[in-house]
Amino acid sequence: MAHDEHNPLTHPEVRSASSAMYIAAFVLGIVAMGIACLVTVGFDLSQSDTLTWITVLAVIAGLGQLFLLFKLDLSKTMIWHTVSLVLTVPLFFMAVGLTIWMFHYLALRTMVGG
């Protein structure tokens, strides 16, 4: 095939690989999840405090992974990756959040469900 004369290893998505960032993502993920686990089982926090802490840690770990592993940015190579993620995330949280919200009220008012 004609196009294989082109060296695919020069592609920016190949070039973007970096051991330092992968190791950083790994450490961040493990440490964040480790602390979150400790917060949950090791400390005697109130439920809402625990939830806040583990949520913050999950956001840190998740965002860290997204940026360190996927190298999302506004460069020409990655712009559409970034845009599509930014458009999807609100839908993700809307689906989860609004559902929990409506079922919370439903449970209060009808005593149906957990």
């Binding site: 999840m33 439920q47 939830l51 583990i54 996927f70």
Partner: peptide
């Protein structure tokens, strides 16, 4: 992409299912 994504999703599963379930 696929494999890295499994890690990101696992952060959510671990936090939202394991940790919240146990707290």
């Amino acid at each position: 992409i696929f494999w890295f994504f499994q890690a990101v999703i696992w952060v959510c599963v671990y936090t939202y299912v394991y940790l919240m379930g146990a707290s």
